[in-house]
């Protein structure tokens, strides 16, 4: 990492000297730097995952190794393919959690934006306060509560706490306030549509781009979540990828960490995220533009 920051600083200095004339290049250059900063670690994982255990610490950092397929085969064979089980668990937690969370956020955001009722501001302020509380702080109290009702060490213990997502509700409220004209709802009411009908047929379709954003946020957050499942789950058959791969890393003082498997596992576990973003992004853009046309 030190190498990267040094290189970044160097570039910045070099850039500062020549930047006085074409100002238009500056933002692009800055964004490029940001992109390098963000993509370099991914690139490093990609390279490191191709190295066999012997090459990992002996060959140059940026040269590809020869062991990628061996690593993948070894990872899939590790403990009779437990990697797939962890991957399926992650998909359940992230997919299910993000879907439920998006549904809850959309409905609550819509209600908070478009209805006047007593306590509306109190609820909203409480939610804003909820954004300020990091999820990490809540993990242990949640664990003790789930133990109390006998749900600790179950899939629900990881799914349920992630469904209510204050930031998602906040986003949904902001989006609903901007994307759904009051006059449209008024018109619907005059035409005799019920509230349920208004929400499902008029409001929610208009909110789809916002919902996609919330879904993506939550999906990535749950996919990467470590502490909550680490505390909640004791049964290694219910682990998501993050906690599962961690058992390979912290293998105990007297056991070597299985670096090559961890790196390969980390690389494979971000593939679905990248795929999701690439497909959802298209959907996201078309909806933004289709919503813009009045």
């Amino acid at each position: 990492m030190a190498g990267v920051t040094a290189a970044t600083a160097h570039r910045r200095r070099a850039h500062g000297a020549s930047a006085s004339r074409p100002w238009g290049v500056a933002p692009t250059a800055l964004l490029l730097l940001g992109a390098i900063y963000c993509l370099f670690p991914v690139f490093w994982v990609l390279i490191a995952a191709t190295k066999s255990p012997g090459e990992l610490f002996s060959t140059s950092t940026l040269s590809f190794g020869t062991g990628f397929f061996d690593n993948v085969a070894e990872l899939f064979a590790y403990r009779d393919g437990v990697f797939w089980l962890w991957a399926a668990n992650t998909l359940i937690y992230a997919g299910g959690g993000a879907l439920l969370s998006t549904a809850v956020s959309a409905v609550s955001g819509y209600a908070l934006a478009k209805y006047r009722f007593p306590g509306r501001n109190a609820i909203f302020n409480l939610l804003i306060g909820g954004i300020l509380v990091p999820a990490v702080v809540l993990a242990i109290p949640q664990y003790l509560l789930f133990s109390e009702i006998g749900l600790a060490d179950s899939h629900w213990a990881v799914l349920l706490p992630q469904i209510l997502h204050p930031y998602g509700i906040y986003l949904a409220r902001v989006y609903a306030a901007a994307a759904i004209p009051d006059s449209l709802l008024e018109a619907g009411r005059i035409d005799g549509a019920g509230e349920w009908h208004l929400m499902s047929r008029v409001a929610l379709p208009l909110m789809v781009p916002g919902m996609v954003t919330i879904f993506l946020f939550q999906f990535v957050a749950i996919w990467n979540n470590f502490l909550l499942p680490f505390i909640m789950l004791g049964d290694d058959g219910k682990f998501p990828l993050t906690v599962g791969l961690y058992t390979l890393l912290a293998a105990g003082a007297n056991q070597p960490a299985l670096y090559n498997l961890i790196l390969t596992g980390a690389l494979l576990s971000i593939v679905p995220l990248i795929a999701l973003f690439l497909t959802m992004q298209r959907y996201w853009k078309t909806d933004l533009s289709s919503g813009a046309v009045k």
Binding site: R79, Y143, L144, S147, E148, I231, G234, T247, A253
Partner: peptide, 24 residues
């Protein structure tokens, strides 16, 4: 067998589970 991560974190996790009433 439930294979856990080793080391200090494992001890903290076991203590947490024991205090919450559902240790292995």
């Amino acid at each position: 067998v439930s294979k856990q991560a080793g080391g200090d974190d494992a001890a903290a996790k076991y203590l947490t589970a024991a205090k919450a009433g559902n240790p292995p």
